[in-house]
């Protein structure tokens, strides 16, 4: 199911990307090729195959490793904030966000 120009603009807005109408056409062609590949895969009969979220086995022991509940991270906010464009009283400052 190919994407329309409107859908491209909507996706761009959701991703906070500025995509001009000309760029949008190029992106649309690329994304439609990707979707075409997915359509091809959809044609495969997968009845009885359990959906898979990750390319690993899901046997017990093969899943996510867990961490002990211990505080291991020291306070390094001074180093981190040295990278930030604006900080004040320990806070990162960003352009005003109004909900």
């Amino acid at each position: 199911m190919p994407l329309s120009p409107d859908e491209i603009q909507r996706l761009a807005r959701l991703a906070r990307l500025a995509v001009s109408p000309e760029e949008g056409e190029a992106v649309r062609a690329q994304l439609n090729r990707v979707l075409g590949l997915i359509d091809e895969m959809r044609a495969v009969d997968t009845a009885g195959v359990e959906p898979m979220s990750h390319a690993v086995a899901s046997a017990p022991g093969a899943g996510q490793r867990l961490r002990a509940d211990e505080v291991t991270e020291p306070d390094r906010h001074a180093e981190y904030q040295a990278l930030a464009p604006a900080v004040e009283r320990g806070l990162y400052l960003v352009p005003k966000v109004i909900e």
Binding site: R67, D69, E70, V71, T72, E73, D75, R76, H77, Y80, Q81, R89, G90, L91, Y92
Partner: peptide, 23 residues
Amino acid sequence: TRSKIFSGAATAFGAAPNTQASA
């Protein structure tokens, strides 16, 4: 919990801003 869900930073309430925020 004492530490965060995906990092080893502390979860204690009321700490000075950003002192419990890890990488």
